[in-house]
Amino acid sequence: MADPMRIRANMTGDKVEVKVLMAHEMETGLRRDAGGNAIPAHFIRNVSVTYGGKTVLSAQWGTSVSRNPFLHFRFNGGKPGEKVMITWLDNKGEKRTDEAVIAGGG
């Protein structure tokens, strides 16, 4: 089971600003271990963010994204006290969903 994401969601003006830190190896498949064997690729393929049942962000990722990726974005129409849900799915079929309540903010 993958470690939980760290999510911060704050209102900035009329937009919701979301910062997500994901714990993931993001192995490219190009590296080799001490024994010379290739380390199998293991990376996040899809990221989706939903708010109130609607998708507000959908991304396709690859091996060029760093280990423990950080995602920062804003979207319209969110309200404080409501939840944003974030899901990632990796190339091994592992999946993780976390949610955060939108804080008032400035």
Binding site: R6, R67, N68, F70
Partner: peptide, 12 residues
């Protein structure tokens, strides 16, 4: 610093 993955280690 805002995106410091150290936070993930701290949580663990």
């Amino acid at each position: 610093q805002e995106s410091n993955p150290a936070e993930l280690y701290e949580a663990r």
